[in-house]
């Protein structure tokens, strides 16, 4: 008998077949569950977040010089579409590096948990544009994106839900200070994403 203690057979092998099968089933479930949790743990793309942040800073500079509120809004909507593309590509890249399935693995689950608040943001954008309440868009976007990050990253490394909470706080501030909307968008979508993105990239595998 080895120092590792009792043999695998002594725990599984000397039991009746039904219990043996249940024990083996439980082991397989444990392996699958651990792999899923480990994948979700680090599926969030740090480098992707940092690039999205840089794109948001560039957009904030462009949007600050926009000739009309509609042009300002268009600049940020284009950035949102670009950022979504960057995010999806970065999640797929990180999943491939970890040899995790992109379509059925933790990466897609992370994307799916982000989807409802982002879709809500899309609907509310239409509603607020129709009502000509562009002043409420920065707060709405930051709050809903923060919600998406906080819920999507709930099972991830602590930095992700913290980023989500900070984005939500920035969004709340944007409702209180509508005149500072563009600056707060630069702070939330730009600076916060760059800082947390670099942290996650360095500490959690890219």
């Amino acid at each position: 008998m080895s120092r590792t203690g009792h043999s695998a057979r002594s725990t599984l092998g000397q039991e009746p077949p039904a219990r043996l099968e249940a024990g083996a089933d439980e082991r397989i479930r444990y392996i699958r569950d651990t792999m899923e949790r480990a994948g979700t743990f680090t599926a969030v793309p740090g480098w992707g977040g940092a690039v999205m942040g840089v794109s948001a800073l560039v957009t904030a500079l462009v949007a600050a010089r926009a000739p009309s509120p509609e042009a300002w809004c268009r600049a940020w909507i284009v950035d949102g579409v670009v950022a979504f593309g960057i995010g999806c590509a970065a999640i797929a890249w990180k999943a491939r590096r970890a040899r995790s399935p992109v379509v059925r693995g933790p990466a897609i689950r992370f994307l799916l948990t982000l989807a409802p608040p982002l879709a809500t943001g899309g609907v509310l954008t239409g509603v607020l544009l129709t009502a000509r309440r562009i002043d409420l868009l920065p707060g709405t976007w930051l709050l809903l994106y923060g919600t998406a990050v906080a819920t999507g990253g709930a099972a991830s490394v602590p930095a992700v839900p913290i980023l989500g909470a900070l984005l939500m706080a920035t969004g709340t501030l944007a409702f209180a200070l509508p005149a500072a909307g563009n600056v707060l968008m630069a702070a939330g979508f730009g600076m916060l994403q760059i800082a947390f993105g670099l942290y996650i990239a360095r500490r959690h595998g890219g």
Partner: peptide, 11 residues
């Protein structure tokens, strides 16, 4: 082993 099988590396 299971956690490392799902990630390139972990701290």
């Amino acid at each position: 082993v299971s956690a490392l099988a799902a990630n390139a590396s972990m701290t």
